[in-house]
Design a binder for these strands. Sequence first.
DNA 1: CTAATTTGTCATAGT
DNA 2: ACACTATGACAAATT
Length: 614
Amino acid sequence: MMETEMHKMNPSQQDVDLIDILWRQDIDLGAGREVFDYCHRQKEHELQRQRVQEEEKRQQLLREQEKALLAQLQLDEETGEFVPRLAPSGQSPQSATTAAPPQVTQNVSFTEDGDAMSFDECMQLLAETFPLVDATATASACRDVTVAPAPNSNHVMMACELPALTQPPLLPASQPPQRTSPDLEQAWMELLSLPELQQCLNMQMKDTLDQTGGYLPTNTTPEVQDPNYSFYPLPNLAEVASNAAEVCPPEFINAFEESFPNMAPLHHLNQMTLKAPDLNTNFSAATFCDVFYPDIVNTKVTSVTLPCGQGNGGNSLAEISHKPTFTPMELHDLSPREAFDRGNKTEIMPEIPDSDSGVSVEASPHASSPEKSMYGDGSFGGYSDSDMEEMDSNPESAESDYSEMFSLSFQPDGFQTSLSVSAQQQDKKPKHGKTEPDEETGHNDPPFTKDKKRRRSEKRLSRDEQRAKALQIPFTVDMIINLPVDDFNEMMSKHQLNEAQLALVRDIRRRGKNKVAAQNCRKRKMENIVELEYDLDSLKEEKERLQREKTKNYSSLRQMKQELNTLYLEVFSLVRDEEGKPYSPSEYSLQQTTDGTVFLVPRIKKMLFKKNDN
DNA sequence: CTAATTTGTCATAGT
DNA sequence: ACACTATGACAAATT
């Protein structure tokens, strides 16, 4: 009876969100299309061709998701180096996710009964109301004689017998709502294993590296460059990548490589780390803005390598570019594990008295839509609740989209961890300067403003995410909740968590699962209500139909009796005694035996029999 | 600001 | 025993 309806709607919502976001980005990015050089356009065409081929091969869902990924890659290219391709306008961004209106099964179970009842009823009526024959007397006095009209009656009954009331089920048997999550996961895995896609990824990677190599040493000023050809973010990305590689703990990298043995480790690591910035609204928004609105940028920045992010010193990308590498200390800080350990030592726990297991209490007042993001920036020091709430409305919103996407796609915790780490690092950099840049970048970025606002409201951290962040839990909430028990235990065993953290993790898992269960339960309840309403309507209709039928049958029966009566009188009037006189209907009646013989039975006799019987 | 609705959480029972 | 799901009830959050 257990419904193993896991991963239910959350993934599907995420899916929709993601695709929606990517789609919008595609549209936004389309504006800058002509900005790019021939080489890029060539790749673009290749991508286009690949995409067309893929479209022919794959079913709709996979296709959509695939496009989303491609779009993402192109977006990557955009921020990093490539040109986004205008998404076909006809293409619907939504995925075929959740299914089917609530199905309703209709149970029509009473047709037989209905017929039987009407038959009995008819028989009874016939017997009782037959005008010329005393049914009671007949039944008792003439045991061996059956009522003449019996065969006739049967026939009539057959004739007026109702057509079968059975009604074909209006709808197929109800099925559990489709689960999209596994599909999505599989789709992503398939996508990532696509040769074309890998080729594409590698190609882009190579390109990135090449350009980076050419660009880095000289540190060309923007004025020299074609304003339309802007790939200034590249050095940053490259640095980010390399930094990520340096920072990323070996186990993460290993896990990562295990996940994708067929890809060059360095390449995919770089790709992943390069991708991360896309999620950073701050980064991408600023970059796009600069690309598409160079004038705006120029008014503010004169000769800076990175026009974006000006205005808040330390956290801008420009700043990062001037600070190519992290000091050992910074790297140390960036290590999530280290941050985590540090969190353990400093113990911010008092700030977040939490967990219902005795350790935790509902402390943080904020809740938000379910299953938000990866636990992206757990490596920052301890934040108070208010700090976190402030952060909520800020930079990691877009990033969490992205992380979320991956957390959905890749269950292996090693891989996920590495992803989250790189995301953390990406996130960390802009924040290093202790101010939050996204406000600045956000407001000079018209095309994204609406997006950001929307996302901001969508992406506030859930309570558990806040708690996890506060306690420096080194896993994402998604992982904690959705990992199978074995994987979960394995993951837990890999980290040393203190009591409070363990309790919190357990609570998060319990709450997360229960939250999903509640969602399913409510969904099911609603479906049941809908189904019952539908059944009710059907039954009402059925009842009306049966009423009409009953009325019809009743009138039909009356007519038959009338005819039978007429016939009986006619036959009786033809019977003559020895003297040729007709029998009196009050003294005699006609009775028919089972073998068809008809007798003339005196009514007095019948009465005598009746008396004897009594 | 209030009312209605939605969502998250807890307790508990059942699988 | 444990992990999990289902669900009613309550409260917080959202509309």
